[in-house]
Design a protein around this nucleic acid. Structure first.
Lengths: 211, 211, 211, 211
DNA sequence: TATGAATGAGGTTTCATTCAT
DNA sequence: CATGAATGAAACCTCATTCAT
């Protein structure tokens, strides 16, 4: 009953509203795209009406922005440490497992929406750049951590190679998530093989038979 | 002016209309998503009016379906032979080059839309399954061709491994195309490294440093 | 093969097309109203495409006009003589039977459409007036025929009374058709009672109990 | 300004909106038919914009449904008592006067629309059946009240005859209203003659001349 | 904060009509 | 005469947003 307690309660209530709306938005954006997701559907899924939405967000684009930031934050603070905590040589397997079973379905699809909106919503440019930079930084972090864990930093990896490796790894992750979202029943071995293949040092002899 | 000359004018005209509409739709769907692409924008881009669309397609969803099938067909008849035509040992490099520079832009983003619509449009399920099945079959075909070309079939590759390899390769290809379509300036070396890593025989010792 | 025969055939073919289109239009107009009936639906029901329609009629309103005239003509040349041919005292029963079982379903509904269109289509005014006049003339004809058949002309029926009787009879017919078109299972006895009641000379004592 | 004063403002406002929309719809439906009445015209006539309509009704068909029910209710609560309140022996004349001068205009034309939509909108079947059933019940009630008022129940009227009389009377009322709504300038004498004719006991000798 | 009535732009779709065949 | 591709106006309906409560 103290003002202290009340204020706290209020803030918590609103935080919960925002959280629920963001969760619902993630599902709707992933399922129907940004343009196809209606605010009514989002608020209804969250158990509110549209008024609650406009009390918490300025526009629909604003919602997508906050959602993207929230997803990125969660990945950095939750998923990434979990993967990195695994001991080598299980780290790749752990990453594969996370991608296939724990990565929120549709997170990739939200990213696609964000990229799509850039031309028509120039104000999103900054956020998108920040997100992209963070993604690349994340991959870089994984690689660095791997180096460290191996206690065997590969000094031969120059900037260009590092960039190529980062892009390849990101492509691998996106490809796996997309296939999964398309309904393909991916095996853990496939995901692991892909990740391990990317991370493995390139063989020197290219004349060897394929595979 | 002879009957000969004008014989098929009617059918040809409509075929051209359909083709143009499909091309325009590919660009609009890729750029704005299915829900965000308006029929007015599609027809205007193709140089027609709204009515032309409804003379050729029943609904917007119908258009996406036909577009997906057309893209799938083109991939099988154009992209696949192009990649297979390359001589070893350059096949991987050739595939990477094709993926980054010649593969039609936006095709992956259309695929994403298809995946999105699946839950709400169950009739799309068949098309998507056919698409992914054909894609996996295509990848398998590439692998078989590679084995044959190498005159060195790898007998140690059992069915499960073959499946994992196929899925991993498809994920790699999709990931590369998606990253490219999202605007990332991919290097040829990144694409080549990814593909080669997947195709390389997995090293037996997993204690080797990552990367 | 003679020009005579050919010309005849052509004319017959076109006449058949017009007839079929008119029949189909009657059903569609009755079922969906003038605005709700589409030319595609009409021509499809008749087994043609929309081109056939525009080869035979100028506009949709034109079709309604011709249809109304055709229905009126058929009534005058077919139904009316049949009713009048019945001997007294069966004429009323015959009329009731015709109304409930043979009068084309929806003929009334077409009339309503015509009346509705008058304000927005001033060019229809003349036709509607002609139709109304013919309807009243028809009722008048029935009454006259009845007088004649009874060989008992009622000289006491002045102009005002004649008008009232005519309106009452028309209202009775419309009411029966409407109820029938609404799906009420009308009994022949109800129709007969209504018609006979209208035609019967008004009783002089109004203080008698109802009915 | 007191909470008291504003207590129901919100609900009252919306109720007024609905009422106005229903009134406007009645006029537009009567004038142009269901398909021919546009929602824009209805809302404009009511002094609102399109959106107000969709805040109050789900679809255009839904509007017709609610309108029909409202008209039905008004008929039972307003028209029926008005007619029954007339004292004998003027009841027939009073009923005729009410029908021609006070019965809401266009109601019959809305009913026609309802009949039209039945085949294509099966969900309307129940409403139509209820409408006609209630109308017949209403007529029956009038007849019973008349019997009672006359303190002279007609015992010779068996169930079948009662049914025929009810149907005939309803047909007469509907026919009069429809003719009036179609623009015919009906005379009171015509309406009175029709009603009196139906209510009069059928003459036993059918060989009597018509009229 | 949250509600929901109302707005109005814009979307998909229908359809009367035209015209080249 | 009949076809049907294309037009484009106008319909129904959705939905982001505003605002009084």
């Amino acid at each position: 009953m103290s003002p202290q307690r009340r204020r706290q309660t209020r803030a918590q209530t609103q935080a919960k509203t925002r959280t629920r709306l963001l969760e619902a938005a993630a599902e709707e954006f992933a399922a129907h795209g940004f343009a196809g997701a209606s605010i009514d559907a989002i608020t209804a899924r969250a158990g509110y009406t549209r008024g609650a939405f406009y009390s918490n967000f300025a526009t629909k684009a604003d919602l997508l922005l906050e959602l993207s930031e929230a997803q990125m934050a969660r990945f950095s603070t939750t998923a990434l440490p979990a993967i990195l905590a695994a001991t080598e040589p299980d780290r790749t397997a752990e990453a594969a497992r996370y991608l296939l079973t724990e990565a929120p379905a549709g997170e990739l699809l939200v990213l696609v929406e964000l990229a799509r909106l850039r031309p028509s919503h120039p104000e999103l440019g900054g956020v998108i750049d920040r997100l992209t930079a963070r993604s690349l930084a994340f991959v870089d972090e994984v690689l660095t951590a791997a180096d460290t864990a191996a206690e065997q930093p590969n000094p031969s990896l120059d900037a260009a190679e590092r960039r190529a490796l980062t892009q390849a790894l990101l492509a691998a992750v996106l490809g796996l998530l997309l296939l999964r979202d398309l309904g393909v029943d991916l095996g853990l071995d496939a995901a692991e093989r892909l990740l391990r293949g990317v991370l493995a040092p390139p063989s020197d002899d290219t004349e060897g038979g394929p595979r």
